[in-house]
Structure formats: C-alpha cells, structure tokens
C-alpha cells in the first residue's frame, strides 16, 4: 500500500456512514419485539397470567369456603348442588380448593426460583469472574449437591428440617442454587474472556465496577431463561413434597396434598380426584411453554 494509493481513497468514513439506518433497538427492546410477534408464547403467557390472577383473587372467586366440611356432601361428582367441580373426601368444594391451592403452588413455584437465581447467580458470577481457586471452591461445593438427584435432595432436606411451607421453600431453594450457579458461571466465563472486559480493565476499572457494568447485563439473559424453566420444575417438586407429606400440612389447600388425600377415592369419583393433577399439569405446561418462548426470543447471538 503506497502512500499515494491510500490518500486517494475517499474521505474516511463517508462509505462507513452510509450503513442502513436501522431502527436503534436495545437488547431488551428487541426481545420484547420478538415476544409480541410470537403468538403461541403470547397465548400461554396470557394463560399464566390468568392462573396467577385466579390464585391472587382466589378468596373473591371461590364460590364456597375451601375449608367448610360437610358430612353428607362427600365425594360428590361435578355439578352436585352448585359445587361445579364436585367435592372432596371431607365434603369441601373442589373449585374453591383448587383456586386456593394455586396460591401455595405458585408461591412454592416462584419464590424458591427467585431466591435461588439471586444467590446462585451471584455465586456463579463471582466464581466465573474470579476464576482460579475461588471458582474451584464454589463450583466443587455445588458439585457435591449435584451428586444427589434433585427430588431426593429436596425430600432429604425438607425431611430433615420438618414439613411446612417455609421449610419446603428452603429445601427447593437449596436444590435450585447449584444449577443456577452453574448457568451463571458458564455465562460469566464466556463473557470474561472477551476483549471488552480486558479493555475495561485497561481503563483501570475495579472488579466490582466491571462486574456491575459489563458482566451482569450479559449474564442476566441466560439466568432469566433458566429461571423461567425452573418454575414448572419447582411447582412439580413442591407438589411432590406435599404429596409425600413433607410440604404444607393439612387442611391447607394445596394441589399436591389434595392429590395425595384424594387418591384413595379415585374409584369413587375419578374425575374429581384427577383435578389437582390436571391443575398441576396445566400450570407447569403453561410455564414451560412461556419459558420456551422466552428462550427463543432471548437466545440470540447479536
């Protein structure tokens, strides 16, 4: 490249500037755009919203008191004396109990995942960013938890701490921290090796500032996607715990617990007894499909 050849090139940047004037859109804006144009995800997100709303407003929506027992109205089929969904083995209205049960299930589904995302996410970011011994220390500790099947671990923890909703949530949180941590660690390790972290370090920025400005934004996506997929797992596990008698205690309305107590009556009123299972199934399917949609919208290489 001779000097004259270079100098006869058009004034710098003119060609560069002519790039198509695309609409300027941030990452989250483009995620929102893709989500709005994904009809399936929109539909199931709407379903999830309905489920959440029905749980929140359960006291207003329930036609009967979910704890009101009746000796003569036990195990009645759909539609018996205004009990749209029938009654259970103690004569309590199934519709009211399903609505109220959703509150426990959703709480048990969402709260442990939220806490685990924060705790596990932070641990993972720290492990991934620090590397070396810190990484080994944190990740090998997580591997110890990984050695147990998640159901077994949840059962063991809540069994050791005793039943009850708070202990159940605690057990689920502990179960979810290791995988959450691993997802955050992987994402952080990927980001850490990129030049812009090095460039940030070259300006003299400290570790904390680099993590806050440059790492968190890039790790949030994968963590959020994974967390959304864990919600349905959490609901299922929570129901499982209740089913085994390790979650909430009777007479609290909870899908897992209802499934457990109604299972003896499956030959008497099969459809009524299957209702809590159907509720669990629909809820977890809806959360799963929304999570899939989120993954599709967010998992984009830009």
């Amino acid at each position: 490249m001779s000097e004259s050849a270079v100098l006869t090139t058009p004034p710098a940047a003119m060609e560069d500037q002519a790039a198509p004037a695309t609409r300027v859109r941030g990452y989250w804006q483009s995620v929102g755009y893709r989500l709005r144009h994904d009809k399936v995800t929109c539909f199931f997100a709407f379903m999830v919203l309905l489920i959440i709303l029905s749980a929140v407003f359960a006291p207003l929506l329930s036609p009967f008191d979910p704890y009101k027992e009746s000796v003569i109205g036990r195990l009645k089929p759909f539609g018996w004396r205004n009990h749209i969904l029938g009654t259970d083995e103690l004569g309590r209205d199934m519709l009211s109990r399903i609505l109220h049960g959703g509150r426990v299930s959703l709480l048990m589904g969402i709260v442990p995942v939220l806490i685990a995302s924060c705790v596990g996410g932070m641990l993972g970011v720290v492990a991934g960013f620090m590397g070396g011994r810190v990484n080994t220390g944190i990740m090998r500790t997580m591997d110890v938890f990984y050695a147990f099947p998640s159901v077994l671990l949840a059962v063991a923890i809540s069994g050791a701490m005793g039943g009850g909703m708070v202990n159940g949530m605690l057990a689920l949180t502990l179960v979810f921290i290791p995988p959450m941590c691993r997802v955050a660690e992987t994402a952080t390790t990927q980001v850490r090796s990129l030049d812009f972290i090095e460039a940030a370090r070259a300006t003299g920025a400290g570790t904390f500032i680099i993590i806050r400005h440059h790492v968190l934004g890039n790790v949030l996506g994968p963590v959020f996607i994974y967390a959304s997929s864990l919600v349905s797992v959490s609901i299922l596990l929570a129901s499982g715990l209740s089913f085994l008698g390790l979650g909430v205690r009777p007479p609290t309305a909870d899908w897992g617990l209802m499934l457990s107590t109604l299972r003896q009556s499956i030959y008497v009123v099969p459809f009524v007894c299957a209702l809590p299972g159907v509720a669990i199934f629909i809820t977890s399917i809806c959360f799963n499909l929304v999570s899939d949609g989120l993954r599709q919208a967010m998992d984009v290489r830009m």
Partner: peptide, 14 residues
C-alpha cells in the same frame, strides 16, 4: 489499548 477483534472488544449489551 485498541484490540484486534472489534466485535468482542465492545460490550454487546451497551
């Protein structure tokens, strides 16, 4: 310092 890889030396979320 200016790095070789112009893509990876800018934060994609910023």
């Amino acid at each position: 310092m200016v790095f070789q890889d112009s893509y990876s030396s800018l934060n994609p979320r910023m």
